[in-house]
Design a protein around this nucleic acid. Structure first.
Lengths: 224, 224
DNA sequence: AATTTTTTGTGATATTAATCACATCATTTT
DNA sequence: AAAATGATGTGATTAATATCACAAAAAATT
């Protein structure tokens, strides 16, 4: 029974792949489980695989000049690290599982071959890369122009709307990780979270978040 | 006589294109000159062309939540706005000539066709996009983690090393544009430039910059 | 269960850089 | 050439956030 046909990541682009191509991928892939906190792609190492996140959640991060920089948090199903696979032999960033996750590694040469054979598929990849770059520009402009309060609101909303699909969730990152994501100190994140709690915008028990006043949070995200 | 064969941008990837493909591009392109300050690609407009910068210098910029954000300054020869062309029908950022420049527009459908026909070429584009995204991550992490002094040093070095290839050059951006690039107010940029002058790190007459102490500037870029 | 390590909470203080407010100089435009 | 607009230079003040310094709580490890 074909594991690749069941893989949501491949399925998303399957209409572009013929059976033979799926079979190629099938023969040259490996599914691996990663525990929370485990490193999936490591900055500075050789990259010889294309990586799919089949399920779970991962953070993309790199060594900045002063501290670790989290670039984005990505949920399955998605490609992981296409740019670092195609852009440089050596990984330019790391990817780490943020909750227990399942990952599929595909040999890069096989993937490249399929890309060469199938122009629809390569067009699809070009579009994915392009969209991801546009998103990066937008996020970067937001992060640098807004102040910490607004960026933190963004993070809380991002988890609710894009990642967990619920206004109640368990924060998968520590406060200092959130700081490394939105360019703030761990202390500032802490103080602002307390502020949100005392303003009844969120409820927080440990890492359990409940968004009580989403409208406020959206306003803060825009103007805060 | 073929204009495309003379275009440095196409020449860079020509070993990947056959005569027929060059001819296709040749028949569907238009070379346009832009004065300093003229808009080449405009955020919010439909994009129907792939754009090459044949010669000159351009800035890539987008509307941030509070002010214009300059993302990068790019010199010819280079593709312009591949991500915004392939990632979204509507341009997600603008490109503006920073000095008088010459640009080649190629119909996107023709370009896509060549991409589909020529897998080497599409691999090349995938690599370009990937590299550009990696660069974006790195730059963004630097910009957000370093303070303004270091980022300004970076800009001065970037002009010298990557753009003009000389330690003496005319700044093609105003101080407020530099501010929008490195996330600082125009006043801060001004004060820091004066500081560099009084520290004999640079000499400045109007927009004419002369780097006097490059080693210092590099130190400031690293630790400042 | 005990110990170590990591994460969180919070005050006091320091610092960077923004903002405001003008003056001056340079460029366009009229 | 005069007027208007935009760019630059510089001080005074304010504001946001980092940093330092601990204590307490939670989680991981032994």
């Amino acid at each position: 029974m074909s594991e690749c046909l069941n893989c949501a990541c491949v399925m998303r682009s399957m209409n572009r792949l013929n059976n033979c191509q799926v079979e190629q991928l099938e023969k040259n892939h490996a599914v691996v489980k990663f525990k929370k906190g485990a490193s999936i792609i490591r900055q500075g190492m050789f990259s010889t695989n294309v990586v799919f996140l089949r399920n779970g959640l991962a953070k993309m991060h790199l060594n900045g000049p002063y501290h670790e920089q989290i670039v984005r948090v990505i949920k399955a199903p998605t490609y992981l690290g296409l740019p670092t696979t195609f852009g440089d032999k050596i990984n330019q960033y790391s990817i780490t599982a943020v909750i227990d996750s399942e990952v599929c590694f595909i040999d890069m040469n096989v993937f490249s071959m399929v890309l060469r054979e199938n122009s629809d598929f390569s067009t699809h990849i070009i579009q994915e890369l392009s969209k991801s770059e546009l998103e990066t520009y937008r996020r970067c402009a937001n992060r640098t122009q807004k102040q910490v309060r607004g960026n933190l609101a963004d993070v809380l909303l991002d988890f609710a709307d894009n990642i967990f699909g619920s206004d109640e969730y368990t924060l998968p990152l520590s406060q200092s990780e959130i700081g490394n994501w939105v360019d703030a100190s761990r202390e500032s994140i802490n103080r602002l979270l307390s502020e949100f709690v005392s303003d009844k915008i969120i409820d927080m028990k440990g890492k359990r978040i409940h968004i009580l006043n989403k409208a406020s949070l959206q306003l803060i995200s825009q103007y805060g």
